[in-house]
């Protein structure tokens, strides 16, 4: 779609169905995917504002950077694996044209979700360790930001897991393949998005 070309047309000069009979969606993809992309854009705005706030708050004198726990590297690895699983699940489902519980794409997506749960558990234990080591929320704004950023990221992931859980349930009950494939593609897309967000946040946390 050429947005510029569209909005510079003089619509009163045309009568009829110039673009043919069929309805013309603006984007040639399922509605769910369009909505997901818009949602991801909103979420990106949210995370960018948090990052901007982080930088502004950093300039205040009392900022004491938090030493990033090494376990975050492990968690990051788990999230990458999770994303990869979804990626290959999608490739697999495209190849075979179907998704079935307990085989191929179904198995890969199950693994992807479980790895994501592993990531969340990992993030939780990092927080627990930090708290035990006396790096509480109130000690410094850097700590507070650490919990805030990781927490909001995990919340987004939980939202994804809810959709994933529903899809897995439907697969287990053996519902129709088209829905399942769409869910899988959406999950994969969303997982990659959250991985990119996490990569950005992780870089921010280790570099400052």
């Amino acid at each position: 779609m050429s947005f510029y070309r569209d909005v510079t047309r003089k619509p009163w000069n045309t009568v009829g169905l110039p673009e043919g009979i069929d309805p013309r969606p603006a984007f040639n993809m399922p509605n769910e995917k369009v909505a997901l992309i818009i949602f991801a854009t909103c979420a990106s705005v949210l995370f960018s504002l948090l990052v901007v706030s982080y930088f502004i708050r950093m300039t205040v004198g009392d900022w004491v950077p938090l030493a990033t726990p090494t376990m975050l590297w492990v968690n990051t690895g788990v999230l990458v694996l999770s994303s990869l699983c979804f990626h290959f699940a999608v490739l697999q489902s495209r190849k075979t044209g179907s998704v079935r519980f307990g085989s191929g794409a179904g198995l890969l997506s199950l693994a992807g979700g479980l790895l994501a749960i592993g990531f969340i558990v990992g993030q939780y234990s990092v927080s627990a360790q930090l708290l035990a080591a006396g790096h509480g929320l109130r000690v410094n704004a850097a700590n507070a930001f650490f919990y805030l950023l990781t927490g909001i990221h995990v919340l987004h992931l939980l939202g994804g897991l809810w959709v994933w859980g529903k899809a897995q349930l439907r697969l287990a009950l053996g519902s129709d393949a088209k829905d399942a494939r769409l869910s899988l593609e959406l999950c994969a897309w969303y997982w990659h998005f959250l991985l990119v967000i996490w990569a950005g946040l992780f870089y921010l946390l280790i570099s400052t």
């Binding site: 947005f3 569209d6 909005v7 047309r9 003089k10 619509p11 009829g16 169905l17 110039p18 673009e19 043919g20 009979i21 069929d22 309805p23 013309r24 969606p25 603006a26 984007f27 509605n31 369009v34 909505a35 818009i38 949602f39 909103c42």
Partner: peptide, 24 residues
């Protein structure tokens, strides 16, 4: 608002009936 908003935007972008271009 976000739930409603995703709906409004997606509906306007994707579900317009045939012949209904943006400038119409």
């Amino acid at each position: 608002f976000t739930m409603g908003g995703l709906n409004y935007v997606t509906t306007i972008l994707q579900a317009r009936t045939r012949g209904l271009t943006l400038m119409r």
